[in-house]
Design a protein around this nucleic acid. Structure first.
Lengths: 238, 238
DNA sequence: AAGTGGTCTAGACCACATT
DNA sequence: ATGTGGTCTAGACCACTTC
């Protein structure tokens, strides 16, 4: 890899997190950063734009670039929020385990066909699992994947990390996902499985995942325990 | 608009929405788009990157650029999701009204000081309002803004659009916001005000807003009716 | 091997803020 | 008037797929 703009943004991000550049400080000017990193203006700008997107810095034309005044915990959460990883990879310090409630191959129902963009009589895996974080149940997932795209999926992969299997064993590249988050009251089944109380709410994440080839490989609906669920966003204008 | 890359991305977005480029179609190559729009490669790439971020297209090095296979409704929602606007501006087809529950100036409580990054004895507006969309209550907002930053705020602005007042009357530029979304059960008060049933859940959006000067101008907590609440996200790797 | 998108440059000019 | 960041260019070279 060694992309220069990634290296520069990593370096500046670290300096912010370590306090070399602290809250409300002005960063060196772009032209000085060009000299410091031996890079062109466009490259430095691209590096800084990553940090703007992460919400760590703010740029003011005519004035300069400044470190946003947010706490270190929020900084880390924002950096995390801009990454797209599976549950296992996102929580390296937690033990993620799964109980498989269902694992079969079915003809894709209408809604699944539509979301996955496959033919009406196409076969898909029907995966239904309850996931635990450090032994506590936190999400119930229903996942559909075309059997032609994700080959040879076995129960052992379902019990561990499907994303890891896709990327490491199948050598496919996951590129992006469209996710819609909403809320509703838990069903009786969900209440029991997630060890909640009657009437408690759940967070719903409906997601369509794409490979870097543009192929849709996943349609999933995740039902989250309400107090183990949060979404971080950085919103910008432009 | 004067920015070339915005013009190009707008043009291509429109062509996608109008079906000139339809689902799974390959877009013209970057070099052809350079000729078509009389622009350099970097400019065309920047224009396309906007559409990638919006989730409308996908790029494959070595192959080309393709239109993602999503329905027109989802396309529109994704485009909306990437913009940061106030409720009034985001819903031009709806009538947004507000019932003011509280409007006063107070010494900022500790949590508010921290979030707004102001001195401990700083005065802030304490705004508490219930908002209606086409006559139906959908969100209860508690907003804190430093009186030194948002000058001369009056009840009539609270009843209409605060963002409009900030941008049009005060001529300030809102730049970005950090938002955290979570879920909990509604309180009795919220249940009544939002016309929900006992035990229903609510969506919580906690937000810190920044002006383009880097100054924090808003700390707010919004409590949303559960079935009038959804968040759209496009997640990417890189 | 040819052709795609990705990175990077060196420099021009523009828009905006401060002096 | 100076200096900031923002946009744009023309072209070089690299990484990847198979046009």
């Amino acid at each position: 890899m060694q992309k220069k703009y990634v290296m520069i943004s990593n370096d500046i991000r670290n300096k912010i997190l370590e306090g070399v550049y602290s809250a409300n400080d002005q960063l060196p000017f772009e032209k000085d950063l060009c000299v410091l990193y031996d890079a062109s203006k466009m490259t430095v700008k691209k590096a800084l734009d990553i940090l703007v997107t992460e919400g760590l810095i703010i740029k003011r034309r005519g004035s300069g670039t400044f470190v946003k005044d947010i706490g270190p915990e929020e900084s880390k959460r924002l950096i995390m929020a801009n990454q797209f990883r599976g549950t296992t990879a996102s929580n390296p310090d937690k033990k993620i385990t799964s109980e498989v409630l269902e694992f079969s191959v079915i003809k894709a129902p209408e809604e699944v066909c539509k979301q996955l963009n496959v033919e009406a009589d196409c076969f898909v895996y029907d995966i239904y699992r309850l996931r635990y974080m450090d032994g506590e149940p936190f999400v119930i997932e229903r996942i559909y994947m075309p059997i032609d795209v994700i080959l040879s999926l076995k129960e052992k992969h379902i019990m561990e990390s499907i994303y890891e299997y896709i990327e490491e064993d199948l050598s496919l590249s996951i590129q992006s996902a469209h996710r819609t988050v909403s809320i509703r009251k838990a069903t009786e089944f969900e209440t029991e499985k997630l060890k909640m109380n009657p009437g408690d709410p759940v967070g719903i994440a409906e997601q369509v995942g794409y490979l870097n080839t543009g192929i849709t490989f996943e349609y999933s609906i995740s039902v989250h325990h309400y107090n183990k669920f949060a979404v971080q966003l950085v919103l910008t204008r432009d």
